[in-house]
Simulated scan of single mutants.
Amino acid sequence: MAATQQPGSDKEYSFVDQDEIWKVHVKIELESAKAWPNKWGFLAKTCKEMQEESHNLKEVVKLELPPHLKPRPPTPPEKYIQVGNSPPVPQTSQAVIGWRSTVPELQLERYGKVQFKRKSFLKELGWAFDACN
């Protein structure tokens, strides 16, 4: 029997033993597959019955929506979004970087800059600053 060491471990293992273990795993899988319909087959039948029942109910009950509840066709984006041409890139040594930030219409911060102020958790709770060590 060829016994070799698995890389990164101190244990020796045999290819024959590994093969026997694999055969046992395959045998258990096949037996489980044969036993499944007897143990759990009712789930598959129930699911099929529910699907058929749902399909039959959909055919029987056909609702006509009133006109005010029917969905309207989607509006094409071109109707409410207009994208104009970009202004020419300024001739500078850094022509590509940051040129849009100088044009007020193209700035991302339309509502002003975001301000993150320093907050103190202890101050929010009304605790003394030496309450936590």
Rank of each mutant, 00 (worst) to 15 (best):
Y13Q: 10
G84P: 03
I21V: 13
F42W: 09
F121D: 12
P87N: 02
H55Q: 15
G98V: 03
Q18F: 06
E64L: 00
N56Y: 03
V26I: 07
T46Q: 14
K119C: 10
S86W: 06
E20H: 08
C132P: 08
E20Y: 08
T4P: 12
F15D: 15
K123H: 08
L65E: 05
S32I: 04
A2Y: 10
P104Y: 01
E78Y: 11
K119E: 12
C132F: 13
E49I: 10
F116N: 04
V83M: 07
L43K: 10
N133F: 09
F15A: 15
E78W: 09
L106G: 01
S54V: 13
V103Y: 05
D19I: 08
V103L: 06
D19N: 13
K27P: 01
E12N: 13
K79A: 13
P104F: 00
K62V: 04
Q5A: 14
L125W: 04
D19S: 15
E59H: 07
N133S: 14
E109P: 02
Q82Y: 08
P7S: 04
E64M: 01
E109C: 05
K62Y: 01
K62I: 01
A3H: 11
A35D: 09
A44C: 12
W36P: 11
D19H: 11
L65N: 03
A33P: 04
P73I: 06
E31F: 02
L106H: 02
Q51P: 09
H68A: 03
K27A: 12
N56C: 08
Q94T: 13
I21L: 13
E109G: 04
A2G: 09
A95M: 09
K11A: 15
Q107I: 03
Q51T: 10
S93C: 12
E12P: 11
P88N: 00
V96D: 14
P73V: 03
K34T: 07
Y111L: 14
K119V: 11
K119N: 07
W36F: 15
K11T: 13
C132W: 10
R118Y: 08
G41V: 00
F42V: 08
G8Y: 02
K39I: 14
S54M: 14
C132V: 13
F42R: 05
E64K: 01
G126T: 01
S54N: 15
K117M: 09
F42G: 14
A128F: 01
H55A: 15
P7E: 03
K34S: 10
P37S: 01
Q115T: 11
R118G: 13
K119W: 03
Y80P: 06
R110A: 11
I81Y: 02
Q5V: 14
E31Q: 08
V60Q: 13
D10N: 14
V61K: 05
P88H: 00
T92S: 08
N38K: 07
V26S: 04
Q6N: 13
